[in-house]
């Protein structure tokens, strides 16, 4: 066997040899090979935060699970993207998310087009074993074009990142901590009163659930368009 070309690594994914560029993440390689790894916070075109923990994979010889969205492809790596243990943890993570806020799918603008809902479905979650926490959260409809419903937020911070990294406005951030965290605009002002929001709508499009939506959309009518993101980041890189 000839040695690998410079910058190219070979590693084992689910028992099969795969090759990748050395700067690629295991998640990116998995997607190239049509290996489905569930994700929620990761989105191509945004920085990775490794926060949702759904894409954790097993590494042979290491007791620690690593997020595929952060884990770099390295020579000799041996990862498993599926296992009984991973399935169990992934299910629990989605159950925890469903228990955390008030995700009432049946009356959601994103019903049928929601990442969280389809994750639950594909992981075979037919009920949530943890007691629902039913926190009290408001809906912010102060913006002329968009609505923010904290009840449906999973704190993936895609909105925060796209606004900061792509739009450059940094209207969004996270306030508080732990189970009390919530996304905010400006100084926790009503969104419509935020000085920095450009009404570009990128946050709405990258939001995985019905937490951010366009006004005028009824139940199940909110479909997100995310094609712009890889395109925008690619254009920026080319013109950098």
């Amino acid at each position: 066997m000839s040695p690998a070309a410079p910058g190219v690594v070979t590693f084992v994914m689910d028992g099969k040899d795969v090759s990748a560029r050395a700067d690629q993440t295991v998640l990116a390689v998995a997607r190239e090979h049509n290996v489905a790894i569930p994700t929620l916070c990761a989105l191509e075109g945004l920085s990775t935060v490794g926060a949702c923990r759904l894409c954790l994979v097993e590494i042979a010889g290491s007791p620690k699970l690593q997020p595929a969205c952060v884990l770099k492809a390295t020579e000799g790596l041996n990862v498993s993207t599926r296992s009984e243990r991973l399935d169990k943890y992934r299910k629990m993570i989605v159950e925890l998310l469903l228990s955390e806020r008030n995700h009432v799918c049946s009356v959601c603008v994103s019903n049928g087009h929601c990442d969280l809902q389809s994750l639950a479905q594909s992981l075979g979650i037919d009920h949530v074993r943890f007691p629902y926490l039913y926190p009290s959260f408001a809906v912010d409809a102060s913006h002329a074009r968009f609505t923010l419903d904290h009840n449906r937020c999973v704190l993936c911070t895609r909105c925060v990142r796209v606004c900061d990294e792509v739009e450059g406005a940094h209207t969004w951030d996270v306030m508080g901590r732990g189970i009390r965290s919530q996304v905010i605009t400006g100084l926790k002002q009503p969104w419509g009163e935020s000085e920095s929001c450009t009404t570009c709508g990128k946050c709405v499009q990258v939001c995985p659930t019905g937490a951010l939506s366009e006004k005028g959309k009824s139940v199940a009518e909110m479909r997100k368009r995310r094609d712009f993101l890889p395109y925008l980041t690619q254009m920026r890189e080319e013109h950098a």
Binding site: L96, E100, P131
Partner: peptide
Amino acid sequence: CTGESCGKCVPCRVGTAQMHR
């Protein structure tokens, strides 16, 4: 731990709250 969890990752943010419950 529930009060000190930073809230970034799901297992710690929600898991500690559920364990506390």
